[in-house]
Design a binder for these strands. Structure first.
Lengths: 217, 217, 217, 217
DNA sequence: GATGAATGAGTCTTCATTCAT
DNA sequence: AATGAATGAAGACTCATTCAT
């Protein structure tokens, strides 16, 4: 097992072995998001990861374990990083909100993380552990981040005083709604939003910030 | 109740027979929304409707047909009625928006119609006909309605001039987002919204109308 | 469900339904005994019972449940009946032993009950519940019965005084050994005993009773 | 131990290599006896022998070949040796029988050979070659040995004249029965014999020899 | 019309066996 | 020689659908 007994595994073989879990996760994420957990066959996941059915079970002991891994792995704790970005942000709070939206669109809405959110809303009733995990690891940290943004705006006199716990949803709602559309109707009818994603977010941002403004012009 | 005791087509039997499709639909709606299409067994649907598995297939030729019927039947064209309500509304457009939200919460969010929306977002990738149908029969009429509200506000000088096709989403987003939460995380963690549904909608309405106001105070 | 609502199930259908469990048990007993539990496929059991794979699972929830049912059902508590026979036996104790052997060969060794014994010895390490059940329900009652026979013989002065708990095995051993042979080597090589079953038991009985006799001639 | 430190064919390596088959056989014997052939995974066998799954197949081409080897190897023809012991035995035939039992308990019942017998009875229906082999190589030589003991006793006037082909079983039965118990119920319930192994064999020997005695006292 | 027993295609999962390293 | 990653055929079990009654 140790390097001085057997030669190191051949690079290629080893690289594959180490890459497998991520490849399987990638495949599973796409399929679970697209077709739902129940409608996805493990064989499809394996095929998409270019391995056989049996190989999948070498890395994940069951389909359910795969689902949990999908949710768990795609949530690499980004919140610490974002929290630091937020703390260091120098501009106005409206600009911070605009920046946050831009970052979020880029890093969540248009990556797997968005699909995971869709997956979680679809499957959390059948797998309550998923709900618990997602709530603690994603939703709550996310809310905390947004709450701090709102508080910053209020403290600096940029935003009118509001109940920040309610205000959180002003920010979150456009994001979540977009993701849901993107992974449902948007798959079948990419134009069904009626406008571009850019226009969608611009409109929301604009109106949101007007509504929040302490001193409307 | 056996055939040799009561006359054929006894009222009760007839009533049962005519009620079957609706009872099955009701049962299927709840289960499809709660567990997803794939994870729901037709036998469960039948049991919840108090009929046998075989009977279900007398009324719906397949599970997929049942799904389609669930979506179709729960969308009794309410839009004509709402359109009339809108035309006849006498108050200010902000009040109309508030009224629309109230009506919508009552008639959609807290009825099966909301569940159907959740169901559609979950399953429309697997059943594209569902997406087509829903888009044409629900989304587009809904957008039309909302568009007219916005146009009314702009024409009457109550709302600032905006791209109404984008503005539609300002109204829709809080609604859809609430429904998604209610049928996913909200099932497992009813307090995870952090605030009451009332506060959720009040906050959204308030900020939305502030942002839209032609003459901010 | 009750007779006055629906007509009684058609006789043929009902008869099948009621017969299924026994037919499946019969099939499973033969196959489990012959091939072992693990090597027997449920589909084989179903085929031998002239039903499809799915039908088996309507009656037994799993292969393991089927195994347990096989053991459980084939042990209809015959011990009470035998106990009464023993109590009422009028002849000498040697004759009683001879009678017991004859009864046992007929009712156990040459019926499924013998196969169940073989099955239990093969599988009890993998299914400890089986061992527990068999020990309590079969072995112990069987030992009790044999113990009483020995005590009768000793009390009546027909058998020399021995430790009856050890003596039990004098009686049991030829029986169990015969069953093991019959369901293993005897299947492949029916002549490998070298003598007839009759001769086998006669020899054992004769020597056994000679050895036990209080007054050897 | 790596190749670049010790010379090729280092003694230890060689010794390991030569020991492999025996180690695998030892592991396989234990597991096959304990769990049955079908329920034992080759990976378990390999693990117990401290080699990898692949290595097992270097020494035995298939699981079935391993089974056959297990039976074959554990039966190192001991019969010639025993036959000589028998020929040279100087005491009375009852003493010879007592001696044979003692030897047998020590060398068969309490070694792997006993497990092999249990294994053969469990699997011989699925692997008829096993039955053939065992019958020829073990059962028949064993019967010959026992037959000669009985003949010795009869010829010397110590035993009453009996059909020796039937009489063989008088000797064999207690042995085989004990093994079966030891590897089935005895594993789960070590006290279920009710008495010690010593008492079990003493009782059998005593009664057996009483029954066989030419001149009962 | 209603039933529910029966079916068998389909799915997850296991494991003997192979083979590149 | 040894490894263990990979395979895929096979098996337990599910469930939408059929159909005799």
């Amino acid at each position: 097992m140790s390097a001085d007994i057997s030669p190191p595994d051949s690079p290629r073989r080893t690289r594959r072995k180490e890459a497998r879990p991520a490849e399987l996760l990638e495949a599973a994420t796409c399929l679970f998001v697209e077709k739902g957990y129940a409608a996805t066959r493990v064989e499809e996941v394996a095929a998409r990861a270019n391995v056989s059915k049996g190989t999948l079970f070498l890395y994940y002991p069951s389909k359910e374990a795969l689902l949990k891994a999908v949710v768990r792995e795609n949530i690499a704790g980004r919140f610490v990083e974002w929290s630091n970005e937020l703390r260091d942000f120098a501009g106005s709070t409206p600009d911070l909100v605009r920046y946050a939206f831009a970052v979020w669109v880029e890093r969540i809405a248009h990556t797997h993380a968005g699909g995971i959110y869709k997956l979680m809303t679809s499957e959390c009733c059948n797998f309550p552990e998923l709900a618990t995990f997602y709530l603690e690891e994603v939703i709550k940290p996310g809310h905390d981040l947004v709450r701090r943004i709102l508080q910053r705006g209020i403290e600096r006199g940029e935003f009118r005083p509001i109940d920040v716990n309610a205000g959180i949803h002003l920010i979150m709602t456009p994001m979540f709604s977009y993701i849901q559309w993107r992974h449902s109707m948007g798959v079948c009818y990419p134009d069904s939003l009626g406008i571009s994603a850019q226009a969608y977010f611009d409109m929301h941002l604009d109106n949101l910030l007007r509504g929040l403004a302490a001193h409307p012009q």
